[in-house]
Amino acid sequence: MSVPEKREKTGQNKNRKTTLILGLIVVGMFGFGFAMVPLYRLVCNATGIGISGSSGTGRIVDSSTTKVQKDRWVTIQFDALLNENLRWDFYPEVKKINVHPGQSYEVSYYAKNKTDHKIVAKAVPGITPWQAATYFHKTECFCFTQQTMDAGEGRDMPLKFVIDPALPEDIKILTLSYTFMDTNRESIRDTREVELPVSVKHEG
C-alpha cells in the first residue's frame, strides 16, 4: 500500500470514529429529552424547587402521631375551577375554615355532571403560597383518582387533610385550588368548534 493511500485509509477510519462518537451523543440527547419526563418530576419533588402553587405532596401520613398545635390557627381557603372543556358544576361546601396544624380535618367538594353523557374527569390540585405545598398533607382526596359521573349525576367528594406543624410561622393563610378537566382528549378540541348548550349560556 502506497503512503498516500495509507494516509487516506487512516483518515477515513478516524472520520468514522469521530462520526460514531458524535452520533452517539445525538442518540443520547434524544434519550435525554425523554428522560426529562420522569427526571423533571423527581427533581422538582426531591428539591422542592417545583412549580410555585404546586400540588402538594399528596402523601398519606399517620395523623395520630403528629402533635396538634392547639394555640395556633391557620386559615384554609378552598377554590374550585373548571377547565373550559368540562360542563360540570363544581364548588367547595365551605369557602374557608380555620384549622390547627397537626389536626386532621375533613371537608367536601360537590360536583355535578350537567351533560347528557358519562364523563371521566380529573381534578388537578394547586396550593398557594408554594412554600406551603410540602406542609399540606392529604390523607384522602378526590384528586387521587379519576372521577366518573353519569349524565346528570352529582355527589359530594371528600377531602381529608392535615397541616404539618412544621409549617413556617409566617404562613397564616393557605389557598387550596382544584381544576377539574375532562380526561377525554377529543373534548379539548370540541370546545373550540361546538356551540355551548343554551342552558350553560344563560348562566354566563
Partner: peptide
C-alpha cells in the same frame, strides 16, 4: 447543535 437539536426533536415527538 449536536447536543440541543435532538432534545427539540424529542419534545415535538411527545
Amino acid at each position: 447543535l449536536i447536543i440541543i437539536a435532538p432534545v427539540l426533536a424529542g419534545g415535538v415527538t411527545m
